[in-house]
């Protein structure tokens, strides 16, 4: 890799780190100023809303299957439903993910086997 390409990697890496780090410094100063309220109460309302909707947007973007076939979409719906069902029963983090992936995999495997 040429020298200028290394510089590009370093600038991109430093910029990404600063975008993750500097807003924390800003928010911690703000929280320190509003010492009496503290915690989540001192957070701007828009920021408190933006967090969960960012996670929702990540979910939406990640739902699109790489294969893009009808079967892949059916597998996504089945996998999502099973994940939700197991979460409803267990209220845990790991098992719903495991069973969701298994359900998704079974539908994908059946499609490959049948075809």
């Amino acid at each position: 890799m040429a020298g200028e390409l290394w510089v590009a990697v370093i600038v991109a890496a430093a910029g990404t780190l600063l975008m993750r780090l500097l807003p924390l410094v800003w928010m911690q100063r703000r929280l320190a100023r509003e010492d009496g309220q503290g915690g989540a109460a001192a957070m701007p309302r828009w920021l408190g809303v933006l967090g969960p909707v960012m996670i929702a947007a990540m979910l939406g973007a990640s739902l699109v299957p790489a294969a893009g076939t009808l079967n892949a979409w059916v597998a996504t719906i089945v996998g999502g439903a099973v994940t939700l069902l197991v979460w409803w029963r267990t209220k845990s983090l790991g098992w719903p993910v495991v069973w969701g992936v298994v359900a998704f995999g079974v539908v994908r495997f059946l499609a490959v086997t049948v075809n």
Binding site: L24, M27, Q28, L31
Partner: peptide, 8 residues
């Protein structure tokens, strides 16, 4: 927007 959301 990630780190400020975790800051509290």
């Amino acid at each position: 927007v990630y780190a400020p959301n975790l800051a509290p």
